[in-house]
Each structure stands twice: as C-alpha cells, then as structure tokens.
Simulated scan of single mutants.
Amino acid sequence: MSWAPAPVTTAAPGPAPVTTAAMARAYARSVVLEHWNNADRTATEAALIDLSLVVSELAANAVRHGGGLAGFEVTPTPQGVRLAVHDNSDVVPDAAFGPGNLPTKHHGSGYGWPVILRLARDIAVDPRPGGGKTVSVLVPLV
C-alpha cells in the first residue's frame, strides 16, 4: 500500500479589499450586473456611467482627503444602489450638502462633490466608531 498526502482543501478567498477607485468602479458595476439587473429591470449604460462617476469621486476623495479608502460597500435597492465609502478622516467636506454648483475657479476644490450632488440622492456623512467617517449615497438606476 502506498502513501499519498491527503488533498489540501482551501476555501476560496473572499473578495480583495477595494483600495482604489478603479477597483471600486469594477466592483460596483459587477454588483449591478449580477445582483441588481433582473428580468424586470436593467441598468442603462448611461446609468452605469453615472454610477462610475460617483464611485470614482467618492473613492478618490477618500484617498486624497480622507486618509485612505478604509472600506467600500455596494448594496442593491429597488431604486438603484447604495454606496458606502469609509475613510480615516473625521472631517466632513464643506460642500457635502451644498447646492452642487460647479466651481468657477479652482480654489483647492474640484468637481467631485458637485458631480456627486447632481447624480446621487440621500447623501449622508456619519462618523465611524474609532474614527473616520462613512459617506453613503444612493445612485438611482431607474
């Protein structure tokens, strides 16, 4: 009788943590295509582009102004998807709840928040236990 090592079984690794805007865009799109689209509704390409813009701005803001992207969540809802972006800063952006006007001159602020305010709904900025904040928005897909 010969001896052979027992097979090694490993659990499939979970999804890699989202650490860049590109990863966040790809993940958000995959959630829409795999979990939001169904026989009764399908996100248009225009809606997916809007989603990509919002994801890009939120993730880039977390990296640039929030001390890093500490987490990213996408939750399908009947109206679209809710994004939650966690960062490491307690600072709430000045323009977070503004009118969404585009800047006429560059004074350190860009187009990010105006784009988010124009394309997303139900914007919330909440402190995280232990520091940092979560910016959550609903991006309509219908």
Rank of each mutant, 00 (worst) to 15 (best):
M1E: 09
M1H: 08
M1L: 10
S2R: 10
S2K: 05
S2D: 07
S2I: 10
A4S: 13
P5D: 14
P7A: 14
A11W: 14
A11H: 12
A11R: 15
P13N: 13
G14E: 11
G14T: 08
P15F: 03
P15N: 03
P15G: 04
A16F: 02
T19Y: 00
T19D: 03
T20V: 08
A22F: 08
A22V: 12
M23T: 08
A24M: 04
A24F: 06
Y27W: 14
Y27T: 11
S30E: 09
S30C: 00
V32K: 06
L33N: 10
L33C: 07
E34K: 11
H35D: 14
W36E: 02
W36N: 00
W36A: 01
N37R: 05
N38T: 03
A39V: 11
R41H: 14
R41N: 13
T42H: 09
A43E: 01
T44W: 09
T44K: 07
T44M: 09
E45K: 10
A46S: 13
L48S: 03
I49P: 00
L51W: 03
V54S: 04
V54R: 02
V54Y: 02
V54G: 04
V55E: 01
S56G: 15
E57I: 06
L58V: 01
L58N: 01
A62S: 13
V63F: 02
R64N: 15
H65S: 10
H65F: 14
H65D: 08
H65Q: 09
G66W: 01
G66M: 05
F72Q: 05
F72E: 08
E73G: 07
E73Y: 00
V74T: 06
T75H: 05
T75G: 00
T77A: 09
P78C: 05
Q79A: 15
L83C: 05
A84F: 02
A84C: 08
D87G: 02
D87H: 08
N88P: 00
N88E: 11
S89T: 11
S89I: 01
D90T: 10
D90Q: 11
D90I: 05
V91I: 15
V92M: 13
D94L: 13
D94C: 05
D94T: 13
A95K: 11
A95M: 12
F97E: 06
F97M: 09
F97G: 09
P99V: 10
P99E: 14
P99K: 13
G100R: 10
N101D: 15
L102V: 12
P103Y: 07
T104G: 13
T104I: 13
K105E: 15
H106V: 14
H107P: 00
G108E: 07
G108Q: 05
G108R: 04
S109C: 02
S109M: 09
Y111Q: 12
G112N: 10
G112S: 13
G112V: 08
G112H: 02
I116A: 05
I116T: 10
L117Y: 02
R118T: 14
L119Q: 07
L119V: 08
A120F: 10
R121W: 02
R121E: 15
A124L: 12
A124W: 04
V125Y: 11
R128V: 11
R128C: 09
G131N: 08
K133F: 00
K133E: 04
T134L: 06
V135S: 11
S136M: 04
L138E: 10
L138W: 00
L138M: 08
P140F: 00
V142D: 11
V142M: 05
